[in-house]
Design a protein around this nucleic acid. Structure first.
Lengths: 136, 136
DNA sequence: GCATTACTCTACTAAATCTATAGGGTTTAA
DNA sequence: TTAAACCCTATAGATTTAGTAGAGTAATGC
């Protein structure tokens, strides 16, 4: 299941991408428009800022804005930041690899084999989808 | 993340599929071979039996066995039984559809659009992969 | 300057889910 | 009749999720 965090994060990014110019948008504006708890959204935007996707401006008239062109933001980046690993099991994860404790032979593992296929496909979708693609 | 339940379930099914004939295999045998807690595996095999994938034989010399040919068991069936919805959000789920509480227009929702693509791809993989494919 | 607006950060919590464990009960073969 | 093996319910600890609370900091405009 996709977490609310990721879901809200994507919605907020799309909102910001649709904004012409790079005018800062206040958290409260996005939160009302997208029906998201303001405080929760606050923490999500903060992680997106800390990881270089968003910029922020403090004080009156402040808010968040995109740092890059929407077509240069791949969904792989967004998903990894908010949701974590794209793979369904750590043993097929590229960025978060971990050996299974119970598994003796990874090469022979049926779960590994199946989930590798799923990961490859999902990864390709996220790679080939940019924020701009989601804005139409 | 794939739950341990699903992971163990798939491993157990593969184990049973590799067994020549349809000789009942005891829970303890599978549990030892695959490093799975016996009691936990018990409950997993029980749900697989209740849903028509496995048969069981009680008493001495009893155990679990596959009811169908491995090549006739699609991974969609297994995943839905053990893991639940294949879609990452309920609003793009075929078998477990649910409207998002926060979403105003599903057609215009970026998350919906993205996750629909992911679901379609994942579903196709699970449909085209049978238990037999995982046994080689 | 100073009040206001708006982002920043830490800590905490209620609820749900996962991953089992415990402890019997029931059936069947030998 | 005995023991192996499945059947079933209840419960519990750990982890994650989805927030909430509240105080702090920075910048703007008057």
């Amino acid at each position: 299941m996709l977490s609310k965090k990721t879901k809200y994060g994507i919605k907020a990014l799309v909102y910001l991408a649709r904004e012409k110019d790079r005018v800062p948008v206040q958290i409260s504006t996005i939160s009302k428009s997208e029906n998201i708890s303001q405080k929760f959204l606050e923490s999500i935007l903060l992680t997106l800022r800390k990881n270089g996707l968003l910029g922020s401006k403090k004080g009156k008239g402040g808010g968040y804005y995109l740092l890059k062109d929407p077509k240069d933001i791949q969904m792989t980046t967004v998903m990894r930041l908010l949701e974590g690993p794209i793979a369904m099991v750590p043993c097929v994860s590229l960025n978060f690899y971990e050996k299974c404790a119970d598994c003796i032979d990874e090469e022979a593992c049926a779960v590994n084999k199946l989930m590798l296929k799923v990961r490859d496909n999902t990864l390709e979708i996220f790679r080939n989808t940019t924020l701009a693609d989601l804005c139409n």
